[in-house]
């Protein structure tokens, strides 16, 4: 399952990269027969048949999801084979690696692949998103904290009641928020993956992933509200609501990073926090309504008793 998710994430990320960075100077093969070259940017093959002759040069990366590609020219970057068939001719020259996560690869002995052929999905994922250095981690932490603080300030300024309702759902119904977050996360992922496989809906799937991110961050802001309020009650936080939200966001993001660094339990705990955040946002509709569990019949029973 993890590998499937990794594969799909990779496919989406690569597709996104190809679409966002190179479509205007690259090629997208959906169906039919195509001859590539003489110069291309990135190439994304999701169907049909492509041929790159010996004089063709692809400056970017090649991503294959389906279809067939016969390559006899030069590729400057990596080739990612997710599905379909890739045939390397005698004149084929690949400057990077060929990462095989699916499909069929056949290569002439005379073909050259500078980075070699790998079937390691993890490696492929890291190729798209390399493991950060300590300096990069520190920078990312600072940027993330600053953005979250800014978002907390804006949220408490523009939608104070929405963050309050979301925070209330987390604080009063933690079990339900976990259940809802887990279900929404899982099913949302499946839905987005299914959309991505239609190819036509890849942009919508990407928007969906962004929405997921926004929802989770909004939930984090609600966590920040709770943390800020708790600090104030213990006499160590500021008095004003906005200041509480900002301080709470800072403390929460620091806590999240600190917890994530703990071996074994760190990752599950930070995942749990994100699941709760997502669940609270779904239950309250981005804070547009209060979440009240259905207790009508129980209340009736209590009145009778």
């Amino acid at each position: 399952m993890t590998r499937a998710v990794a594969f799909v994430s990779l496919a989406l990320a690569l597709s996104g990269v190809a679409w966002a960075q190179g479509l205007h100077r690259g090629a997208l093969l959906l169906s039919g027969e195509h001859r590539l070259g003489p110069t291309e940017g990135h190439v994304l093959v999701v169907g049909g048949t492509g041929v790159a002759d010996a004089d063709a040069r692809i400056d970017g990366v090649v991503v294959m999801l389906e279809g067939a590609l016969t390559l006899d020219g030069t590729v400057a970057g990596d080739v990612f084979l997710m599905g379909g068939t890739l045939a390397l001719g005698d004149e084929a020259r690949v400057g990077g690696r060929i990462v095989v996560a699916g499909g069929e690869l056949s290569a002439s002995e005379a073909a050259t692949v500078a980075g070699g052929v790998t079937r390691d999905l993890q490696l492929a994922a890291e190729a798209v998103r390399p493991t950060p250095t300590p300096a990069q981690r520190a920078a990312r932490f600072l940027v993330q904290t600053l953005l979250l603080v800014l978002a907390a300030f804006v949220a408490v300024l523009l939608v104070p009641r929405a963050t309050e309702r979301t925070a209330e759902a987390i604080a009063r119904h933690p079990v339900v928020t976990v259940a809802m977050g887990a279900l929404a996360g899982l099913i949302g992922l499946v839905l987005l993956v299914a959309m991505a496989f239609t190819v036509v809906l890849i942009p919508a799937a990407l928007i969906g992933f962004v929405l997921f991110g926004v929802a989770t961050v909004f939930g984090w802001l609600a966590f920040g509200r709770l943390v800020g309020r708790a600090l104030h009650r213990r006499g160590v936080g500021p008095h004003g609501v906005r200041a509480q939200a900002v301080v709470g966001a800072v403390v929460f993001v620091v806590m999240l990073h600190a917890v994530a660094a703990v071996p074994w339990i760190g990752a599950p705990l930070s995942l749990l926090a994100s699941v709760m955040a997502l669940g609270a946002v779904v239950l309250t509709g981005f804070g547009s309504r209060r979440f009240v569990p259905d207790r009508g019949a129980l209340e009736g029973a209590r009145e009778d008793a």
Partner: peptide, 12 residues
């Protein structure tokens, strides 16, 4: 049917 047949899809 659309995911690569490396076994992970079979469990997914």
């Amino acid at each position: 049917d659309r995911l690569p047949g490396d076994g992970s899809a079979a469990l997914g």
